[in-house]
Simulated scan of single mutants.
Amino acid sequence: MVELSQQTRGAGLIDSMRKAREIPQVVLQQYSSIRSKGENSLICVFEGNDDLPYYGTVFRLVANDHTFAPILSKGKEQLLAFRQLLTKRELNDPNIAYFIDRDFDGFKGYPEGDDVYCTDGYSIENQMVGPDVLYDLLGSEYKCEASNDSACVDAIVQHYGARLNEFVDVMRPVNQIIYYARKNKIPLSGIENKIRKYLKFEDDAVVATDNDVFELVGWPEFIDYSSVDFNDQAFLELDPIIDWRGKFLFGFFVEMLTYYKADRTSEQPKHFGSKIGVKFDPRGESVRVFAVLAPVPDALRRFILRLPGRMGSQ
């Protein structure tokens, strides 16, 4: 484990205390604004803007009689700090639920509870992508079923699986660095999520770029990473597709869908039987599409069905 200097520790503590004072209060203001209107409806607190399209879609799939007022915090730390603040103020509100990504750091030392849904894998992005979603998209948006081109679907899914294995090899050291930083409370200044910064396609293979991954993940300059042993047996036991950083996996999935779209609409497709126009834009507002096609995790389904506010629920 890397030891931080006393000055660095002190600066980090002051900064974290300042954020702990400011951000939960901002979220508390949103909460108070909702409750001050005399509404006792269900409130769902999410980590940020990216969560609402996914959870909103899942709510409609699982329990379309549910309505809720959303509160968007600025990250998991702020969400959990707000929850703790609400508890300390002895505001026992039974009509509030929290949704967080497990990431590499779980509940970050905050208490768990039945009012919090934590993803089974790293994040909601891990739950939205995979072969099952690819199968559905190829059949519908890429028009394999309508064009009697279904024979190519299995081959494309196999092709995707091979590229996915290469993705895992390229992104292993990146995830390993982030894992180490989270477990040892090393502050990262900002993780670059654009997957093209980390990998590229050469001769139909996924390979690493020449970019410095330590710069890409925001490794602090005051820590010499050359002296760090990043090997950790616990990391090696993680499932790369489920337990590694979801935004990387999501970005890779979008890149592959874009590649297949370009091939489908080319004059001489390599993976499809013929050229056909595709309106679906993988780089567009695809979260809701993926959320509809992906299986809803059992734990999330049970959590939603237990929430107050459903017609006929107690």
Rank of each mutant, 00 (worst) to 15 (best):
M1C: 09
V2C: 03
L4S: 11
S5K: 05
R9A: 02
G10I: 12
D15F: 00
D15A: 08
R18C: 04
R18M: 07
A20T: 04
A20L: 07
R21K: 10
P24C: 00
G38L: 05
E39C: 10
N40W: 03
F46R: 06
E47F: 10
E47D: 03
N49A: 14
D50S: 15
P53T: 10
Y55N: 03
T57P: 00
F59T: 11
F59N: 04
L61V: 01
A63D: 15
N64V: 01
D65E: 09
H66C: 14
P70H: 03
I71C: 02
S73E: 05
S73V: 04
F82N: 01
F82I: 01
L85K: 12
T87C: 13
T87M: 12
T87Y: 07
K88D: 12
L91P: 01
N92H: 13
P94V: 05
N95D: 11
A97F: 04
D103E: 15
F104G: 01
G106D: 11
G113P: 02
Y117Q: 02
T119P: 07
Y122I: 06
S123P: 01
I124H: 01
V129F: 03
P131F: 04
D136C: 05
S140V: 14
S140G: 02
C144M: 09
E145H: 09
D149A: 13
S150L: 12
S150M: 11
A151M: 06
C152T: 15
V153G: 05
D154L: 13
A155Y: 03
V157H: 07
V157N: 03
Q158F: 07
Y160P: 00
G161L: 11
G161A: 13
V170R: 06
M171S: 03
P173D: 04
V174H: 10
N175S: 09
I177C: 15
I178E: 05
Y179N: 08
Y180Q: 02
A181E: 05
R182D: 13
K185R: 14
K185Q: 13
I186K: 12
S189Q: 14
G190T: 06
E192D: 15
E192Q: 15
I195N: 03
I195V: 14
E202D: 14
V206L: 08
V207Q: 07
T209L: 05
D210Y: 05
D212Y: 08
V213T: 07
P220N: 10
F222N: 15
F222E: 14
I223M: 01
I223P: 00
V228I: 15
F230N: 12
N231P: 02
L236M: 11
L236I: 04
D239T: 08
I242T: 12
R245L: 07
F248Q: 08
V254C: 04
L257H: 11
Y259E: 10
Y259M: 14
A262V: 09
Q268N: 15
K270I: 09
H271R: 13
S274G: 04
S274H: 09
K275S: 15
V278R: 01
F280L: 08
F280Q: 04
P282G: 08
R283V: 04
S286C: 12
V287E: 06
P297F: 12
A299M: 09
R301N: 08
R302T: 12
I304A: 00
Q314R: 12
